[in-house]
Design a protein around this nucleic acid. Structure first.
Lengths: 252, 252
DNA sequence: CTCCACTGGGTACGTTGTACGCGGTTGCGG
DNA sequence: CCGCAACCGCGTACAACGTACCCAGTGGAG
């Protein structure tokens, strides 16, 4: 980002993504570290202190290396983040999919994806995780899209998965951002509520926002567990998917 | 982020969000600039060159001010981004909502939201836009949630809107990130395809990824216009919403 | 008029990603 | 077995970032 390097060697430009660039060369001394080790360390830091805390110097310190050593393994920090994102995809357990029960399969996937995001909230700040096609993501695509592959065309499958993933990511993003709100402000939830009260109260009292007032005063959903909110919405999405399947597949 | 300022004045800490902090003080000389003007300039830069290009110095230069002058109007860059996000909410035209035709209303909203995101792709990199409650966002909530308010409980309404927004944002995020891919690499689409070919081809030829292969070889959707893809999926989501409404409301 | 809360803005600091180059190590070609 | 090119880890250096701090000027309240 800071670099102005217009000139790039042809060899470097050849690789349009990280996965095309070989990790290990043939000759020379044995590397002390590895991409996997660096990625792991970076994830550990990001989990504990956020993605922005995972600076190159900090990661290097974590594994006991010098700052610039990391560039022997990874071309740039952006690429490292890409490696991290793909590593996370591997955490979603999709062994045994498709099992024959599409509804159970998609529920397991949804729960797994959500749990992974909640374990690593910083993933929400990473864009461009989709068109990267790392090994773990590829495996996930195989398993997940295999679930509906026998019922619908590949195009329809893509559309339905977009809807499912959209719901999951959208919901979890909201969970994460409200949790982030507390962390950033350094306030506890009741303390934050107390601080926000004058603003919220002013809006309510103004009388100009009846629906917002209704949300504040009447809604029980914000008081339900996040898990229940998620499950409820997920059932709706699965119902929608069911409607798109041929009648014979719909029941289980 | 770089500042270590543990000590903060009590007055500053009082304001838990930007909207509670007054823009103009009572006394002293008339300010030359304004929050609105700064926000506008920042959006202009972010649109043209991405959010990361909208640095404090660059924004200040855009309006002809010194770098530090901006801090007279905005406490931090993060807060400025919050202002920018809310300004964008104001671009979604929801006048006349609810009109009585919920399906038309939600379609208009969905198209408006998507168009706004595509005009300002950097919004995808901003988290925490939801719990901020800026003036434009509040107005949007009123209009949008008013559409289904007469049919369903406020809780159900929140759930359905989460699903709708999740679909829209998820879809548009994918559009944006693939466009970003080209911009970042500085390659045209066919050029990028050509560069990626060895990698994709290797995956296909390995025979280990039948579904991925199917996507590459058979899927027509990637060749459809993005608009059509979006419309198709949106109809599915609206069908799903229809199923959650009381029978009397379902038809129009 | 005086006062001082406010203005715009210059300077400076700490932190970031990473280009560059050094001296040491390794494994292959002869 | 030897030489050397290719690779290693890493120290230094630089440009750009957000922003703390400070200062001289300004204009409404007393």
């Amino acid at each position: 980002m800071y670099a102005t390097g217009e000139e790039e060697t042809v060899a470097d430009a050849e690789y349009v993504n990280i996965w095309m660039r070989p990790e290990r060369p043939a000759r020379g001394p044995k590397p002390v570290y590895s991409r996997a080790q660096i990625t792991e360390a970076a994830i550990r830091i990001a989990d504990a202190e956020g993605l922005e805390a995972a600076t190159m110097r900090r990661i290097a310190a974590e594994i006991g290396a010098g700052a610039m050593s990391l560039y022997r393994y990874v071309p740039s920090r952006d690429n490292l983040v890409e490696l991290m994102a793909d590593r996370l995809m591997g955490e979603i357990d999709v062994t045994g999919l498709p099992s024959g029960d599409w509804r159970a399969d998609l529920t397991r996937y949804a729960d797994g994806l959500r749990a992974m995001w909640l374990r690593h909230p910083w993933i929400a700040t990473v864009q461009r995780s989709l068109p990267s096609f790392g090994p773990n993501q590829l495996l996930l695509i195989e398993r997940l899209m295999g679930v509906l592959d026998v019922f619908v065309s590949i195009d329809e499958n893509l559309g339905l998965m977009a809807m499912l993933n959209g719901y999951i990511e959208g919901t979890v993003r909201e969970e994460i951002s409200s949790a982030e709100e507390f962390r950033r402000s350094g306030l506890s939830e009741p303390e934050w509520m107390a601080r926000s009260y004058p603003y919220i109260d002013g809006l309510v009292k103004s009388g100009k926002y009846p629906i917002f007032t209704k949300i504040v005063m009447e809604a029980r959903q914000p008081h339900l567990s996040r898990d229940d909110q998620f499950r409820y919405g997920l059932q709706r999405v699965l119902d929608c998917i069911a409607a798109a399947l041929p009648a014979t597949a719909r029941d289980n």
